[in-house]
Design a protein around this nucleic acid. Structure first.
Lengths: 158, 158
DNA sequence: CTCAGTTTGTTCTAATTAGAACAAAATAGT
DNA sequence: ACTATTTTGTTCTAATTAGAACAAACTGAG
């Protein structure tokens, strides 16, 4: 094992930075009376005419068992609706309602501004370096999980 | 706002990398019949004669409302015990039992090896760069939350 | 000694996490 | 047409998340 004195602090910093970021992002989203996973679903659906449940799960990092509950609560708030697929009896298409779309159009640019502030002092190279570091760690984890297991496209492109 | 086309992908990568890492770490800890927060408490207590509840919360990133439940379940498993403070009627000292200590001594080195594998191809400079990037983002978040708010020592040193 | 303010850990809350198990529908092979 | 396998989304489970509210104990000022 290499670097035994330093990797624990790196990983702790990953966890702390992640937690700090979620807390920061949530502080804005709470004003919309939404939770982060709920908002994530709305911004993923924004600008589309609807997505299959499975695709929505892939794009949002919410596992399917959990996603049902998140969608139920958004449906209760009148922000999304489920539409049965015409071609596959198992499938559902999830899409924003008019209210959901209005919220998306108003809140998403605000949220981008709110989050974008974190990077006010970053150059494009700084951001590229950070992203490259995270991608590398992500690949290291995937490699360690299963030798040769490749990640699907969505995990590296967006 | 600067870099509007790139920061969303960086943040998504932070979330994905974090999720992938947790899943990887959990796959080892599950073999001990523990969850990640439970194991985190055990390795935080390992090598000490006990820590006050408050200190434990600070070191583990588990908020105090949640920590009570995690400690209850570890107590039920016979791995830790609560000891009333002799000097402060409100405080409790949390410490490992003999069983907890034995598990720590056995499992912690294994876990370090398991996690250390992620960094087999990293040089010390690579790790330093990654950590610096994460610390910088963490500071950016803290700065955005409250101008001038300083982080306590523990968030940057370990 | 008294009192106001702060600290500590618990209880409570709604939501989420990450699967496993399941039923219904689709697919592929014969 | 039949059958086995796979896929899709739901239900269920135990645990966790992140506070807010609370009661008991402590601290500091007067």
């Amino acid at each position: 094992m290499k670097n035994p004195d330093t990797f624990p602090t790196v990983l702790r910093e990953l966890l702390r930075t992640h937690q700090a970021f979620l807390s920061y992002a949530a502080s804005h989203v709470q004003k919309l009376n939404l939770t982060l996973p709920q908002f994530d679903v709305i911004i993923t659906l924004g600008g589309t005419s609807g997505l299959p449940y499975k695709t929505l799960g892939e794009k949002t990092l919410i596992t399917k068992g959990t996603l049902t509950g998140v969608i139920n609560r958004l449906e209760d708030k009148g922000l999304i609706q489920r539409v049965a697929s015409k071609t596959d009896g198992r499938s559902q298409i999830i899409r924003l309602t008019e209210a959901g779309n209005a919220l998306f159009k108003c809140a998403f640019p605000e949220h981008l501004t709110f989050i974008g502030r974190l990077f006010d002092d970053y150059s494009p190279e700084d951001i590229a370096t950070l992203e490259a570091d995270l991608v590398r760690l992500h690949k290291a984890v995937s490699t360690a999980r299963g030798a040769g297991e490749t990640l699907n496209d969505d995990e590296y492109e967006e």
